[in-house]
Amino acid sequence: MNLLLPGAYIAADSALHRLDPRVKLMAAFALMVLALVVHSLASLVFLTLFVIAIAILAAAPPMALLRTLGAIFWLGFLMFFFRLFTTPGQPLIVVGPLSVTREGLLVGATQIYRLCLLVILSTLLTFTTSPTQLAHGLEVLFKPLAQIGLPVREFALVLTIALRFAPALLDEIDKIGKAQRARGVQMDSRNPLRQAQSWSPLFVPIFVAAFRRADELATAMEARGFRGAQYRTRLHQLHLSRQDVLAALSILFISLVILIGERMT
């Protein structure tokens, strides 16, 4: 495997890697909600410091972490751009009927900052939790939904398989793309017509490969006695350790501190 999806799991042995996936999932969810609801600057700074502390605990390579922000560059840019012009308030620069306001600048910047925090938090989760663990954690957390007939275990399995094969598919796209470029396809042509023509040499083989792989995987699973997710047992059972309880309590504590701080200001 020579390509890396941004945010893909990095095998290591940090405090965060050892944490129970259920705790990590709930903590990530709680912190994401916090990042969206807090208003005061103090809370945001406090939250940021906490996220930095988590990143250090996760032994996450800082550059790789920041690079994942590149994925939301255009989204962030558009959000900022619209906020800049649509927020009413004290005008700074006026361009025809549009005006950039001081409030727009502030709101836009805060919004981008929130978005960045969300991405960093989810990246920290996927950096330190293997796809299998992630799916297992989700499965356990969403178990109550199975009561109303949702196939939670099947969803978890589908998620595991999708995450497992994403890098393989990426490698495949890379390989076929190169092979067709060697046959004279111009993938990077500026002419839109030529670019559209370069799609079928790329996507037909990739779909063929994906279906073949799915077929082979299904056969392999059946050959090993897979009869549907409800019969499945786990090699690794999840157990809450003292560290897990400690981590959950500290997240709870910090969330409460931030929320109470918000109320008082």
Binding site: E172, K175, A179, R183, P201, V204, P205, V208
Partner: peptide, 17 residues
């Protein structure tokens, strides 16, 4: 110059479309 080089990857049949 690149077009004067022919390259077949491993399992070149995967590129058929």
């Amino acid at each position: 110059a690149r077009l004067r080089i022919g390259l077949a990857f491993q399992h070149p049949e995967d590129q058929i479309f």
